[in-house]
């Protein structure tokens, strides 16, 4: 598997660390359903998914858009820029 790092180009997946689904952190500082969802509950989409990967050599967190059916990687963008 290869992922496109916006800074370094297309790189082997061994350079990346996988985090999980790209979700927005809940605003509330106190425990509630939103936090339960953020930490534990995941969709299992057949098709497009957005998840977070860390490119270890350059230290950039990326939002990677890929397809769980075809395994196609559509793109990656820095999470700091909204991961669009």
């Amino acid at each position: 598997m290869r992922l496109p790092c916006p800074h370094c180009g297309v790189r082997d997946r061994r350079e990346f660390t996988y985090q999980g689904a790209a979700l927005a952190r809940p605003d509330s500082p106190d425990w509630g359903e939103a936090w339960d969802d953020y930490l534990h509950n995941r969709d299992n989409p057949a098709g497009e998914t957005r998840d977070l990967w860390y490119h270890d050599p350059c230290g950039t967190w990326l939002v990677v858009t890929r397809d769980t059916v075809s395994h196609a990687v559509h793109g990656a963008a820095p999470a700091a820029e909204g991961g669009a």
């Binding site: 985090q19 977070l52 860390y54 230290g59 950039t60 967190w61 820095p78 999470a79 700091a80």
Partner: peptide, 8 residues
């Protein structure tokens, strides 16, 4: 820390 800074 990179995650906290860039993502959160």
């Amino acid at each position: 820390l990179d995650f906290a800074r860039q993502v959160l």
